[in-house]
Amino acid sequence: MNKSERLLQLLTLLRARRTAVTARALAERLGVSERTLYRDIQSLTLSGVPIDGEAGVGYRLGRGSFVPPLMFTEDEIEALLLGVRMVQGWGDEDMGSAADSALHKIRSVLPDKMLQEQERQRATFLVPDTQRREKARYSGIIRRAIKDRQTLWLDYRDEQGNPTQREGNPLGLIYWGAAWTLVAWCRLRDDHRMFRLDRILDLKPTGQQFQLESHQTLEAYIRQYDPEFVDRAFL
């Protein structure tokens, strides 16, 4: 990656964030040293891009900053197309429709040459939707509950087939390649717990709102097992 490409990617990363991001996290994402990252930040600043920086906190774009429109490489378009196919094959119907709509919007602004290439490769990435409805069961309700911070009641069967009822604060959905799982703060166990969506017999929002302590979040749960993944996923 040459410097101009790296600066554009750095600008894209900063634009995607509303909060400050550390130099270390940016350098790791770009695959460069922190020293190179500091020089790149300086280059953008000298070219007129308003970047706010604070020692120990990180960088973010200043208010009212102008950023040029997005440009995609062919590999990025292929990655987006594959992502849409994955969401359509493994997600619920609402998410599949949203992903397809987003892809149409992206295709509408592509240069003619890139659009023709993308059209030619449309059938290159196929993700069968085998058992999609069972694997993604209740995911629409769960996604809304996560956004609304609303506690869920679950009628569930564990790995041994034993029935159990739980109330939990939904934190996130994780797809492991074979099954979707809900990560929640279980009120009965007072700890994080994972529930496979295909083992949920019934699920209902309770109408009760919840607030999270720092140790109860999805980030805190994942950090226990893979801190490096957290740094990538929550950048």
Rank of each mutant, 00 (worst) to 15 (best):
L218H: 04
F195L: 11
E213Q: 15
H215M: 13
Q216K: 14
A184Q: 11
P205E: 14
R189V: 09
F195E: 11
G177A: 14
L212T: 09
T217W: 05
A220H: 07
D202P: 12
D191P: 15
T206G: 10
H192S: 01
L203W: 11
G172L: 02
D198C: 12
T217H: 06
A220S: 14
T206N: 10
L203E: 12
W185P: 08
S214R: 01
W176Q: 10
P170K: 05
W185C: 12
L171S: 07
A179D: 05
P170W: 00
L182G: 08
R223W: 00
V183K: 11
W185M: 07
A220T: 06
M194R: 08
L171F: 03
V183S: 14
K204E: 09
L182D: 05
F210E: 05
G207I: 01
Q211L: 09
Q211R: 09
L201Y: 01
Q216Y: 09
Q209G: 13
T206M: 10
S214I: 00
R193G: 03
R193E: 02
T181R: 15
N169C: 15
Q208M: 03
G172S: 07
G172A: 07
N169I: 05
L203M: 13
E213M: 15
P205K: 04
Q211P: 03
H215Q: 15
I222N: 15
I174L: 12
R223K: 02
S214D: 10
L197N: 07
Y175P: 06
L173V: 04
Q216C: 09
A184L: 11
L212K: 12
Y175E: 09
W185F: 06
D190Y: 09
W180R: 06
T206L: 08
Q209E: 09
I174Y: 06
R193Q: 04
L182F: 06
M194Y: 02
R196W: 00
I200D: 12
Y221D: 12
L212R: 12
A178L: 01
F195K: 10
R189F: 07
L182E: 05
T217N: 08
I200W: 07
A179R: 02
L201H: 02
A220R: 04
L182T: 08
G168N: 04
F210P: 04
I174A: 08
A178V: 02
L188H: 03
L218Q: 05
A178R: 05
P205S: 15
Y221H: 14
N169G: 15
E213R: 14
D202H: 10
L188S: 09
A179V: 03
L197M: 03
H192L: 04
N169A: 15
I174V: 11
F195A: 13
L197H: 05
G168W: 00
W185R: 10
D202K: 09
A220V: 04
H192D: 01
G207T: 03
T217R: 11
